[in-house]
Design a protein around this nucleic acid. Structure first.
Lengths: 318, 318
DNA sequence: GTTAAATACGTAACTAGTTACATAAAATTA
DNA sequence: TAATTTTATGTAACTAGTTACGTATTTAAC
């Protein structure tokens, strides 16, 4: 199967599937030889009942990692073959208690010999290998439980894309995009206020000339985000982080983070000791980003914006 | 899932299956995000065609390790979605040549980015593990190819059962079973000859008192096999191995081998230099056993048995 | 104590594969 | 070259699971 060699780690899922199928078909043959009249797919239920005694359908499903309809169907089938018996729980009438039948209990010794042989065989195969598949599965399952494959791939994507994002200082050619990137989100959640118009219509006069800075995020040459460092007149804070806007189509690339870092760096460069920002809690991803950057909620500052319902500050001297 | 902890290596197949399912469902989500309009199950075919260009259905099936009907169905589905095109091979009209469509070729760059991200993600997970699942799979697949799980379990079974087989010297209480175990196979393939009757009816007089030995194989206390070491009057050979019979219900436990080894050992103990036997080639398993023990075909000895069509000898001095 | 939410579990429909079998074409053999 | 065997492929029926959804109970909330 040259496919696996070519496709590499991409095909890990398919590879595991094919191997498991191979093992499970072999298992069916093994059952025949040992004259244990159960089908391989019954095995997990048979095994768990032998260990635990009576169990309800959902509990079995949880234990063996299958869906409850699957267990429900299989139990019915096993009951038809006289392997298990079903009975209603007296305390909870919804529950269908499943237990091994006398017949199944009688064949347990035989089954256990078979289980032991299979176990020993697999263990000896593992022992012959340099790389322990059992432990490898433990680790892989642990990693996937901690963070799903999907989320991990998204993280890889994000970090790859972040490499293609460049943060550049504002120049007049970004005047229009600086305004539209901000209008986009303000219009969606709130409405443009006078203070917004002042800064967005005339960034040079109201930000740059006052000692502030504006950054533009470029993705493959296109401006897709912006953020400003605005000097403020405040006894506690030197600068405010504001006018952060990222185009919706470019979300998920970590652009906000990169812009934020650029602003913080510039602030430090300018000797800023405490950085301030205002926002609104409906902008959940933004608030999360600010927290991740190191901002903490503060209270009691007067704000020129009606939409402001949260204020945050960060100490840059640490 | 306590099941895997309890069932241990027995459940390796189920465990692999569940993990592969988890990975493949996640893969579906990944495709959505990257806007590569292919389904996860199309992936192997898509991938191999991207690598190899046009291929026939069976060749694809072989490459990706699926059955050809599966490929046939999937190709049809992919064709309906405009991912592949089908065309008859001009040289061999049975063949259905499948290739990527223009549309699919156009989306290759996008797909390749996705593949690279997934690949990198899986590789980083493997890198984070102490036990490399990829290499572990290599080894496990190699072992299974060399000898299937089924055969391996059978070998384990045999060696376990061999431990329960005891070889004991003949005593008068085995007189009856010594006869019936031999009659069983002689009657099935040939018919009882005078020489048989002599030895089977009176083993004490015709074997033991002449310096021969008889062994009985006991399985859980029951006599299930026998074999004799009979002194013969021959210029080349001192003893003959004969009257080997194993009950059909006890076959596959390695009983023949154990009896044979007991006879050889006793022969060596008695200073025997060359051991002889006569048999018939219809008794295939027996011939195989003799060869495995170290007997080699010899020719030109006169035999008292009509059924003899092969003669074998073994040098015990090596 | 009534109502709403959660739980247990069955049924139905779907999915991604399989094996068994049929058919046509090609390759081999008499 | 005719007959037989092998190969390539498709179709049908099956398998072992899944998700979606409905119903009966139980538990929690007001």
């Amino acid at each position: 199967m040259d496919f696996f060699k070519k496709a590499g780690k991409l095909a890990l899922g398919s590879r595991l599937k094919i191997l498991s199928e191979k093992m499970l078909t072999d298992a069916a043959e093994v059952y025949k030889v040992y004259e244990v009249p159960i089908q391989p797919k019954w095995f997990p239920i048979f095994y768990i009942l032998a260990e635990e005694g009576q169990m309800a359908v959902t509990d079995i499903a949880k234990s063996i990692g299958h869906s409850h309809p699957s267990v429900s169907k299989t139990v019915r089938e096993m009951a038809k073959h006289g392997i298990v018996t079903e009975s209603k729980d007296k305390k909870d009438k919804r529950k269908n208690l499943v237990g091994l039948s006398q017949k199944a209990k009688a064949m347990r010794p035989n089954a256990e010999i078979q289980f032991a042989d299979v176990n020993e065989t697999v263990e000896s195969m593992i022992a012959q290998s340099n790389h322990d598949i059992w432990k490898a599965l433990d680790e892989l399952e642990y990693l996937l439980e901690e963070k799903s494959l999907f989320k991990r791939v998204m993280a890889t994507k994000k970090s790859r894309e972040a490499k293609d994002v460049k943060i550049v200082p504002y120049t007049p050619k970004y005047r229009k995009v600086f305004k539209t990137l901000n209008e986009e989100w303000i219009d969606q959640y709130f409405k443009l206020e006078d203070e917004d118009r002042k800064l967005l219509d005339n960034p040079k006069k109201n930000i740059l000339n006052k000692g502030g800075h504006i950054f533009i995020a470029l993705y493959k040459g296109e401006a897709i985000g912006t953020c400003a460092l605005v000097p403020i007149d405040d006894p506690e804070y030197d600068f405010e982080l504001g006018k952060m806007g990222v185009s919706p189509k470019a979300q998920g690339k970590g652009v906000g983070w990169l812009l934020g870092q650029a602003v913080v760096e510039k602030a430090k460069e300018l000797g800023c000791k405490k950085l301030y920002l205002e926002s609104n809690t409906v902008l959940e991803p933004a608030i999360k980003l600010y927290l991740k950057m190191g901002f903490k909620k503060v209270v009691g500052h007067p704000s020129p914006y009606a939409r402001c319902n949260i204020q945050m500050g960060m100490d840059l001297e640490e």
